[in-house]
Amino acid sequence: MKHATLEALRGLRAAKTPIALATHLASGAQALVGYETAEGDLHLDAGALDAVRQALRDDRGRTIETGQGAVFVNVYNPPRRLVVVGAVHIAQPLVPMAAIAGYQVVVIDPRHGFATDARFPQVTLDTDWPDEAMERVKPDVRTAVVTLTHDPKLDDPALAVALRSPAFYIGALGSRKTHAARVARLKELGFGDNAIGRIDAPVGLDIGAVSPAEIAIAILGKITQTLHAGPAAA
């Protein structure tokens, strides 16, 4: 790997630009390939570039066959994101667990008493109203959203934005009864069964979780399961 390639790769990654490193396995020649760009001493034809960009979209590295021989594609996408709505007790273990699992975490809660740096050190806190904060976050196919406030005034606007987004996971804390009421409210907002069916509720894997940390494990477990079970879009 050329020094310039290493430094370009680190710079693109720091700028959160999705980038693939294509390596010709026989010679070691390399190219940095983005959705619109391709640079380096490895020159790929249009078909090979398409295959590299598909790996980037799939978020999965792979070896592709080209006219020049085997080329390995390693994918450097920005971190997956987790949006936590509700700076509640469950969020306190969930945030560091998700960070260890590689997620960039945003906590949204307009209640200043909850969303404090002391309760959530080293995490992005957004104290705007959830729909405004969520519009700014713009959940994409590599984003998971979980609502934890138990308060429809806060959870529902966040869920509405999430359901209009391609987020790969949407979860909402609350009992079956709470969720039934939520479903009725979301229907009034015009969401159909398919959209509402995307919501994981009761939230998380059914592992008998009781404590906040255990519930956080159940949620992160379900997010992980959804990520790897779903179409290779995440």
Binding site: H3, L6, E7, L9, R10, R13, P96, A99, I100
Partner: peptide
Amino acid sequence: MNEPDILDQVHDWRA
């Protein structure tokens, strides 16, 4: 807590 970043480590060693 997180594992050391490989590319950053490579950069530091080369530097």
